[in-house]
Amino acid sequence: MTGLLLKDIYTVLKQMKFFVLVVIIMACLPGYSMLTFALVYSAMLPMTALAYDERSGWDKLAGTMPYSTMDIVLSKYALGYIMIAGATLISALAQGILAAVGVAKPVENVLMQIAGAVGIALFFEAVVLPLMIRFGVEKGRVIFIAIGAAIGVLIATAYKSIDSFQLPDGLNTTTLTVGVVLVLLVLNAISMLISVKSYEFKKG
């Protein structure tokens, strides 16, 4: 899988330079949405690599090399995780420095914000990759936008109908965090399985 990962990193290298710049700028800007944007943007790089693969027909060549379907699919997830980890590190450093000099919020708040943004980025990757692998980057993108819009409408409707939200009794922030992490892990594992099956299906 190292070869595949290396190929993807070379492929998105130009974008990565821009990406590091964007992440640094976003991470330095105040506001949660900017931080989330930086991390979600990092989770999008595997899609760029997939688009390059599609354009070059790499999959046809990869099918003749000693890679398993699992290798080919998981390398894209691995690329996403590496990028998210990199963006998290840059964001944490930038926000930490800003907090230390008193420009940003206290460090604890910043860490919570980053954790939340990482969760959103992992969710994004788990949802988007199977779609892109199954339907191709162009179609997959359209389907994702449709699903994203539907989720947005649902959230907006739910938000309007709830006046005040409180955690149920016996459920504190720690248990909620552990729960979210577990859900994300399971979601990513399911996503990988679906992607592997989709890739196999595309073999005809």
Binding site: G3, L6, Y10, K14, Y52, R55, S56, L61
Partner: peptide, 24 residues
């Protein structure tokens, strides 16, 4: 194997191809 097209990603250089194949 050599297919009807070379199918390497267009931004790769032969130097990159060497590194990728070393790990393949």
């Amino acid at each position: 194997v050599v297919l009807d097209e070379a199918y390497f990603p267009e931004v790769l250089t032969p130097k990159n191809v060497n590194s990728v194949m070393q790990n393949t």
